[in-house]
C-alpha cells in the first residue's frame, strides 16, 4: 500500500484562534477515508489545506507526491472535488457544465466529449444532458457535481458532505456510486455528519474535535474499542431515576441524556430480562454504532 495523502503536524489558525491543532493523517491508495467531527471541528479547513487552497501555519502536506501548497497545481490535476455547497454553473446545461469544467484541467473538447456519455451514465443523467441546472432536483445536482469531479479521471476524490440535504433514495444512489469508485481503485476522502454513511463507506476514519484528531481507526475497531458490542436505550419518564438505581449493575457504562438512559453492554440479556420484568419502562436494544462513539468522544452538547 502506498500513501497518496500525507499530513504531518498540521497547524492553522485564524485571527489567533487555532483551527487545526497538530493533525497527522496518512491515507493509502484505494482507501475510503472519512473525516468526522462536530461543526467547526476543522474538517473543511483540513480539506482546503490538503488542496493547497490555503496555506498552513506549519506542518507538512503532500498530495499524490506533490508538496502542498507549493505544488498544489500539479497535485490538483489528478484530484476531483465535490464541494459542500453546490457551485454548478446555473447558466449552463448539464453537458456544458462538464465541458467547461474539463477545460479547466487543460483537456481538449474532444477528450471531454469522449468521456461525456460515461459520466452522464454514472450520474444517471443521460436523459437530462441538455437540461438547465435550475430544473434539476437536489439529488441530480449532487450527482452532476460528482460526475464533474470525475471529468479529469482523478486518482483522489475529495467529498465535503456529499449527501447533506438529500432524500434517502438519492443518498443510496450516491453511496452506490462511491462504492463503485473505491472498487475502481480510486482514493476517497470524505467528510460527513451521517454516521451511518461513514460506517458504510469508510475503510478508516478520523474523528476531529477542536482542530485535533481524537480517534482514528476502522469503524468496527472504533466501536469495539470505545463502546462495546451492544446498546440498550431506556427512555420515558422515570428512565433517569431507573438509571441512577440500576444501570450501574447491568451495564459496563451508562449515560443519561434528557429522558433517555444509554446503557453500553457486552451481553444485553440480564438487562433486557430486568427491563422486561419491570414493565414500566420502554427500551430499544440495538448493536453499538459509530454515533455512540462520536457522541462519547465529542460530547452531547450542541456546537453552535
Amino acid at each position: 500500500m502506498s500513501g497518496v495523502i500525507s499530513v504531518k503536524n498540521l497547524h492553522k489558525s485564524y485571527a489567533g484562534q487555532n483551527v487545526i491543532n497538530g493533525i497527522d493523517i496518512a491515507i493509502n491508495k484505494g482507501e475510503c477515508y472519512g473525516l468526522l467531527g462536530p461543526n467547526g471541528a476543522g474538517k473543511t479547513t483540513t480539506l482546503r489545506l490538503m488542496l493547497g487552497l490555503i496555506g498552513p501555519d506549519s506542518g507538512e502536506l503532500s498530495l499524490l507526491g506533490h508538496a502542498v501548497p507549493g505544488h498544489a497545481r500539479e497535485a490538483r490535476l489528478r484530484v476531483g472535488v465535490v464541494p459542500q455547497i453546490d457551485n454548478l454553473d446555473p447558466d449552463f446545461s448539464v453537458a456544458e457544465n462538464l465541458l467547461v469544467y474539463g477545460r479547466y484541467f487543460g483537456m481538449a473538447d474532444s477528450e471531454i466529449e469522449a468521456r461525456m456519455p460515461a459520466l452522464l451514465e454514472f450520474a444517471n443523467l443521460a436523459h437530462r444532458r441538455d437540461a438547465k441546472i435550475p430544473t434539476l432536483s437536489g439529488g441530480m445536482k449532487r450527482r452532476l457535481t460528482l460526475a464533474r469531479a470525475l471529468v479529469n479521471d482523478p486518482d483522489i476524490i475529495f467529498l465535503d458532505e456529499p449527501t447533506t440535504g438529500l432524500d434517502p433514495q438519492a443518498r443510496h444512489l450516491i453511496w452506490q456510486r462511491l462504492r463503485e469508485l473505491t472498487a475502481q481503485g480510486k482514493t476517497l476522502l470524505l467528510t460527513t455528519h451521517f454516521m451511518d454513511e461513514a460506517e458504510r463507506l469508510c475503510h478508516r476514519l478520523a474523528i476531529l474535535d477542536h482542530g485535533r484528531m481524537i480517534a482514528q481507526d476502522t469503524p468496527r475497531a472504533l466501536i469495539a474499542q470505545h463502546i462495546g458490542a451492544q446498546v440498550v436505550e431506556v427512555f420515558g419518564e422515570g428512565a433517569a431515576e431507573w438509571a441512577q438505581q440500576h444501570a450501574g449493575h447491568y451495564a459496563q457504562r451508562h449515560e443519561v441524556s434528557g429522558e433517555t438512559a444509554f446503557c453500553y453492554v457486552d451481553d444485553a440479556q440480564p438487562l433486557l430480562a430486568h427491563l422486561h420484568e419491570n414493565g414500566e419502562l420502554r427500551y430499544l436494544h440495538r448493536p453499538a454504532n459509530l454515533e455512540d462513539v462520536f457522541l462519547k468522544l465529542t460530547g452531547r452538547e450542541m456546537r453552535e
Binding site: 488542496l51 487552497l53 497545481r73 500539479e74 490538483r76 490535476l77 484530484v79 472535488v81 464541494p83 455547497i85 457551485n87 454548478l88 454553473d89 469544467y101 479547466y104 484541467f105 487543460g106 479529469n152 475529495f158
Partner: peptide, 9 residues
C-alpha cells in the same frame, strides 16, 4: 463559480 474553478489546477 470561483470556488468551483479553484478546485482545479
Amino acid at each position: 463559480t470561483w470556488d468551483a474553478i479553484l478546485n482545479t489546477p
